[in-house]
Design a protein around this nucleic acid. Structure first.
Lengths: 195, 195
DNA sequence: CCTCTATTCTACCGGCCGGCAAGTAAGCTG
DNA sequence: CAGCTTACTTGCCGGCCGGTAGAATAGAGG
């Protein structure tokens, strides 16, 4: 029985992985179930043994990604108390995540709007929880330095903007290694061009 | 004859405007020609009198947007010589553009990949020219301050990241007015949190 | 061997897709 | 008035879409 479950899980994971790549590269709407079936070497109908609908598949991908993100943020938050060091760690984590999980990182930016109803709400809610990590830490950081940050939410979005926009241009194999990029972002945001 | 042309242009402009809104709100793939026809109060086939294909319509939208962007950047570049002031002006222009032309601004970020072949290349090429304005000015800015910027391209993308990510969160009617936001971006990038 | 269950395939569905051919009403031009 | 153009409409096309019913297959347990 355990054997059954693992085999099932293994196949499901394989489909899941191929789906991430395909949906990311083609876009959710463009990529058809037939494309996915061909890519994993199955029939279209066979796929429906593992998920109920195309939209559920997208949900599973995006929701699991948000779970991974939140778990990471949670872990950092528990481990690092100092706001400055924690903020640094958030940025490093974010860049690292993009490099190690490019497909899902791009998918959640490009195709989150393809979800509807409860699915959309669930993912959006986790994004809100994710943002609150940043906001809280950034607020403490300002407080620690004796210069509280006004327009806090806007600042959070500017910082996240730098972190997330990398999906548009960054290639980890280039001259700038992930940790260097993360440091760059932190210094530019906190110290400006002279940092 | 001039009358004909204007009437034709007027109708075309109307279709164009509705298309921008519809394609932006639904996404290019999701929005069908039938949806667009209904939205402008015509038949699907009638639309094809004004453009050759759905993809051409998207191209016309994105290409014209890039033209507007480049024209604006060109004008600023010609008018302002000082690198610092020019950089400020770029940022203000970018934020302003987003506020006044939200649909096309979002479209070019979300759906540029729906173009193929020559159309894609044409738009991408204009984006490259657009980036070169930023890069050149940022480089001069660093030189002017006696601190040349290394990883120049990365810095350009970080700055543009803050400017473009606003499509994900910014509402011009909120507490932060467009010029204030533009100033905020400039100060955060050049001076850090203390600016 | 048979049986049962897990997994996958064949064959099909209705519906919407982008696009086109042909027709037409209105208006302008001689 | 005829002749031509503009600005559409009607009606259709083949094709792909997501999704499903039910048969076939395979492997484990008895």
């Amino acid at each position: 029985m355990a054997g059954h479950k693992t085999a099932m899980d293994q196949r499901a994971r394989e489909i899941f992985g191929v789906a991430c790549r395909l949906l990311c590269e083609m876009g959710y709407e463009r990529a058809s179930i037939r494309d996915l079936a061909e890519a994993v070497g199955m029939t279209k109908a066979g796929l429906y043994y593992y998920f109920k609908s195309k939209e559920e598949l997208l949900f599973l991908i995006l929701d699991s990604y948000m779970d991974d993100l939140l778990t990471g943020m949670e872990e950092i938050t528990a481990r690092i108390a100092d706001p400055e060091e924690r903020l640094k760690a958030y940025i490093h984590f974010q860049v690292e995540r993009y490099c190690q999980d490019t497909y899902r990182s791009k998918l959640i930016i490009n195709d989150e709007n393809c979800l509807s109803g409860e699915w959309f709400k669930t993912v959006k809610d986790k994004q809100r929880r994710y943002l609150s990590y940043w906001r809280e830490t950034l607020e403490r950081f300002g407080h620690q330095r004796g210069r509280p940050i006004d327009h806090l939410s806007a600042h959070v979005m500017l910082l996240i903007g730098m972190c997330n926009w990398i999906y548009q241009w960054y290639h980890p194999e280039g001259e700038l290694r992930p940790p260097e990029l993360a440091d760059l972002i932190f210094r530019r945001f906190t110290l400006g061009l002279d940092g």
